[in-house]
């Protein structure tokens, strides 16, 4: 789980989705999540996953990195599906829901900087919560770097080796202890800075506007179409026999998206 890769793409990427307003992307993600919540057919769910991957490839987002993150919850969903699902199709549905929801959220996060996603949350949560959310974002990258440095230092001193798992585990635990002390020192430094600057609560995030209206429209229409398809297959029983068409359309989307993405390069 490399959170820093997400931030790099969100900050320095330049795709069609990066040009859309964060508010439009948040609405589009909400529509996609509504589709995931309501999908009740594994074939339709598979179609959503394929289509979403194709869309990400078409706008040239880093699909491989995204898939690593999106497939990660599949591991846990598999355990849940194995434990709780009464049959194979329901298990497949659970796993596909996990992957599709993760893919929707990861697409948002790979094209939108964290503070822009946190800004609307900050508006509806108590001030301490909103500010701590932004402070977590700042501290996260500092601590991730520090932990990486600590692990590298231990490895260079031959403390981390696959042949000696117990020793490596003990070294990792000590590194985490060091990281804990460092994080408390970091919080102390941040407190000093806030004190010096007269902070009384309420960080402000400058809202990012749309750089390309067509990108906003495209994201919203695409998400609405996917939700519409899911709604149709859920509430029109006559369509049940044609769910495979959604999977097929998803596969076509994926192939087309991959081709468009490759051409643009």
């Amino acid at each position: 789980m490399d959170i820093t890769a997400v931030d790099r793409s969100a900050i320095s990427g330049d795709t069609l989705l990066h040009r859309a307003a964060p508010s439009s992307k948040l609405v589009a993600t909400a529509l996609l999540l509504a589709a995931v919540v309501n999908v009740n057919d594994p074939l339709v769910a598979a179609g959503l996953t394929l289509s979403l991957t194709g869309a990400a490839a078409a706008v040239r987002l880093p699909v491989r990195q995204m898939l690593v993150l999106a497939l990660y919850p599949a591991v846990f969903a598999l355990v849940f599906a194995f434990a709780a699902a009464a049959n194979v199709p329901l298990g497949a549905l659970v796993v596909l829901k996990a992957v599709t929801a993760a893919l929707a959220v990861v697409t948002l996060m790979f094209s939108t900087p964290y503070p822009q996603v946190f800004a609307p949350i900050q508006r509806v949560t108590p001030r301490v919560v909103g500010d701590a959310l932004l402070m977590t974002y700042r501290s996260l990258f500092i601590l991730a770097d520090k932990f990486s440095d600590l692990s590298r230092a231990i490895r260079l001193r031959a403390g981390l080796s696959r042949r000696q798992p117990v020793r490596a585990a003990a070294a990792t635990v000590r590194a985490m202890g060091g990281l804990l002390l460092y994080s408390l020192d970091l919080s102390q430094r941040e407190y000093d800075i806030l004190h010096l600057r007269g902070y009384e609560g309420g960080f402000r995030v400058v809202r990012q506007r749309s750089a390309d209206r067509s990108a906003d429209t495209a994201a919203l229409i695409y998400s609405a179409i996917l939700l519409g398809v899911v709604a149709a297959f859920r509430w029109i029983p006559g369509l049940a026999g044609y769910a495979w068409l959604v999977t097929l359309a998803g596969a076509v989307d994926l192939a087309t998206g991959a081709l468009i993405g490759r051409r643009r390069r």
């Binding site: 701590a132 941040e190 806030l194």
Partner: peptide, 12 residues
């Protein structure tokens, strides 16, 4: 002022 950086660092 005290809570925000502490919660931020520990959450991170």
């Amino acid at each position: 002022r005290r809570a925000v950086p502490l919660v931020g660092a520990i959450s991170a």
